[in-house]
């Protein structure tokens, strides 16, 4: 019972970290609300390391996710004949917006991630980056899905890898090995 309470408290802290980090990525991306791609980047930053391990399992480097977000914007612009410079089309540029006051609000794709996390909260012992990766990898459309395609990542394979590491980690405590 005590471990259950500890896990729930830990999950609340992880959710807070995840939301704050996702919002920070969104603001750097000139967006006021965090989308699924921002939650993916935030999950990769979590200290449990399971998100990075899931990417590694499918032969991808999670560190390339940030560039991939920018790459999919550039690719989409090129498809309509716009060759915008990095300063306009880049994914995450050092010109962040300021956080707005008021309640936390995610973009629809980010809200979908949060909704899925809430629906599966009883399976999170504890909540890990891999859980977020599994949810985002299951999204067929959107910036995150296109970014994964830009990285050459098979979404189904990534989801399976993320599920594997989230299950494995249920038997571990602390960060998993790099």
């Amino acid at each position: 019972m005590l471990s259950g309470i500890k896990t729930r408290l830990s999950n609340v802290r992880t959710i807070k970290t995840l939301c704050e980090s996702a919002e920070n990525y969104a603001l750097q991306d000139q967006q006021r609300q965090a989308g699924a791609e921002h939650f993916l980047l935030a999950a990769i930053d979590l200290p449990d390391n399971t998100a990075r391990l899931a990417f590694r399992e499918v032969g991808a480097d999670a560190a390339g996710s940030r560039d991939a977000v920018g790459a999919q914007y550039r690719e989409a612009l090129r498809s309509v004949g716009v060759n915008a410079g990095e300063h306009i089309s880049g994914g995450l540029i050092p010109e962040p917006l300021q956080a707005a006051a008021g309640l936390y609000e995610a973009a629809p794709s980010g809200a979908e991630v949060m909704k899925e996390l809430a629906a599966n909260r009883n399976d999170h012992r504890p909540l890990l980056g891999a859980h977020v990766v599994a949810i985002v990898a299951a999204m067929e459309q959107g910036v995150a899905a296109r970014a994964l395609r830009c990285m050459g990542v098979d979404p189904a394979g990534l989801k399976a890898a993320a599920n594997k590491f989230s299950r494995t980690s249920n038997r571990h405590t602390g960060p998993m090995g790099a």
């Binding site: 498809s79 309509v80 306009i88």
Partner: peptide
């Protein structure tokens, strides 16, 4: 060069990227 309507995935991705680029340019 615009994607044709029978390529909705590419066209919708372009819409998102154009909106974002427009927002950046506006600021």
């Amino acid at each position: 060069q615009l994607p044709t309507p029978d390529e909705p995935e590419e066209a919708l991705a372009a819409v998102v990227a154009l909106r974002r680029a427009a927002d950046l340019l506006e600021r």
